[in-house]
Amino acid sequence: MGENVSFWQSLVTGHPVCSEWKQEAEGSIYQLASVLFVLGCMGGSGFFGLLYVYAFFALSFLCTCIWAWLDVCAADVFSWNFILLVICIVQIIHLAYQLRSVTFDKEFQDVYSSVFQPLGISLTVFRKIISYCNAEVVTLERDHCYAVQGKTPIDKLSMLVSGRIRVTVDGEFLHYIFPLQFLDSPEWDSLRPSEEGVFQVTLTAETKCRYITWRRKKLYLLFAKHRLISRLFSVLIRGDIADKLYALNEKVFVDSGFRFDIRLPNYYHVALPGRSNTATPIIRVQDFSTKRKSAKRL
């Protein structure tokens, strides 16, 4: 016990106390090194944040090396700061290489900038979504079908990048699919991972289209490994389904001319004049494509 006390006493009080402080300040190089180090501590996260941090740290350690070599003439101070400088340079090279390797085709870059980046998804996470599932960009010529009702199996998930897709069932027009919308989100959400099925609608390209496609099984494997990506796609797919339901809602109206809202079906029992609350209005689906054709003929 006495040995421990003497050790702590020598550690705390065994060294000479500063009787007086040095009057003159260190040179401008040392002050610049301190300022650069403080600026480096203000960096953020992510690739660019780390580049910012290591760049300022490298400049700070470089200034400290110059100060130790010219003013202090201390080999140990110079050596330690030089080692730290080399570590920062290696980190900068490594980060720059990673940033350079995270490059995508134009279609992937557009999808990332428009869909994933606003949600705070980093380039590294997006690279996993692209590379792990072997995502590819496919071209669909005009009047060619992406899926045929009752025949095409549901084995992938695709997002339209350019063009326009027409959705029909039994030859009747339902709605359009526009860029940055999923082509098969309702089909994806209707099946469990272990289930199989076929499309109940036909998807036909009205113009030349390009879309990104992921294989279903590989996406599920990715979801099992990364819960963040699983939740991300769950939000995107369900939002896409909601947009498609609203597009269908624009075509539905009741027999008296009131537009039918799929969210409030009971509203029309009390809103329609001259009807009892128990009466059920007749719901009709308006075929806008027929109206457009007749208008063109006129």
Rank of each mutant, 00 (worst) to 15 (best):
F7V: 11
F7Y: 15
L11R: 14
P16M: 02
E20V: 14
S28R: 11
I29F: 04
G49Q: 04
G49F: 08
A55P: 11
F56Q: 02
F57V: 01
A58C: 14
A58P: 14
L62Y: 13
I66F: 06
C73Y: 13
I93A: 03
H94M: 08
H94Y: 08
R100L: 09
S101Y: 13
V111N: 08
S113C: 11
S114A: 10
Q117V: 07
E136W: 06
E136T: 07
L140F: 11
Q149E: 05
L157P: 01
M159H: 13
M159R: 15
L160E: 08
S162H: 11
V167I: 10
G171D: 01
F173R: 01
Q181C: 09
E196L: 01
Q200F: 15
V201A: 02
T204A: 00
C209E: 03
L219Y: 05
K225T: 15
L228S: 07
R231S: 15
I237Q: 02
I237E: 03
Y246Q: 06
V254Y: 08
V254F: 07
F260T: 03
N266G: 10
S276H: 09
N277G: 13
T278F: 12
T278L: 15
I283V: 08
R284S: 15
Q286H: 12
Q286S: 11
F288M: 08
T290D: 13
K291C: 03
R292T: 12
A295T: 13
